[in-house]
Design a protein around this nucleic acid. Structure first.
Lengths: 107, 107
DNA sequence: TTAACTCATAACCGCGGGGTTATGGGTAAG
DNA sequence: CTTACCCATAACCCCGCGGTTATGAGTTAA
């Protein structure tokens, strides 16, 4: 089954949520407040997105006093990379098979 | 902006639709009827999914008589591959910077 | 202790989208 | 010509989900 892919794709499908993940990848660890500032949505919305990202294994949270720091966990993208390269691989295999077939016909 | 990524992620987020795309990648060109058989949903649903995949550039359609053949266009996955490797790259850069910092502190 | 700040959760709302059935256009078959 | 088949579109339904405001738990500051 592709249950792992499913969660990853669905989590990254939302633009706001993906933008938050991008910021964490580009700029490193951020507090909820900092993420909320340039997110364009309310703080509860950001918290919910962070919860979804965490459930998908894309981010980690670290509690420090009264603020929570989130950081990206890009290793979680590996299933995505595997899936895409696998799809591209199937495609390439069929191209190779076609090449071979054509070469046999030439002989 | 990440408008291209957005369409790709949203299109691949649905399990049924992604399964159709996977079948086209694995088994090559298929008619709508053939795809409908093992899809678990009705024929109109499959047609709508194929329309979405086509709009995202993930599939091509070829009309032959009264049936339509669809085939995967895996080159459309390149933006996805680029995005994921870019995210992983940011992460790696920060790790490298941390390494460098630690080595300077050792001196 | 009281007050202020940060974040998470609850409760609610509106809309987008994936599902269905019904229908029609286009093509092959009788 | 009539019938049967394949697919796309229309019209509709419903549920999930991303957004909001309101509130509370936990922590620092006065």
């Amino acid at each position: 089954m592709s249950a792992a892919h499913d969660l990853l794709f669905r989590t990254l499908a939302d633009p706001t949520r993906r933008a938050i993940f991008e910021r964490l990848c580009r700029e490193g660890e951020q507090t909820v407040g900092a993420l909320t500032l340039r997110s364009g949505v309310s703080q509860p919305a950001v918290s919910k997105h962070l919860g979804a990202l965490k459930q998908a294994g894309l981010v980690r949270d670290r509690h420090e006093g009264r603020q929570t720091h989130y950081s990206a966990q890009p290793g979680a993208l590996n299933p995505l990379i595997d899936w895409t390269s696998q799809m591209a691989g199937f495609w390439q295999n069929r191209l190779d098979a076609l090449d071979e077939l054509l070469q046999r016909m030439d002989q």
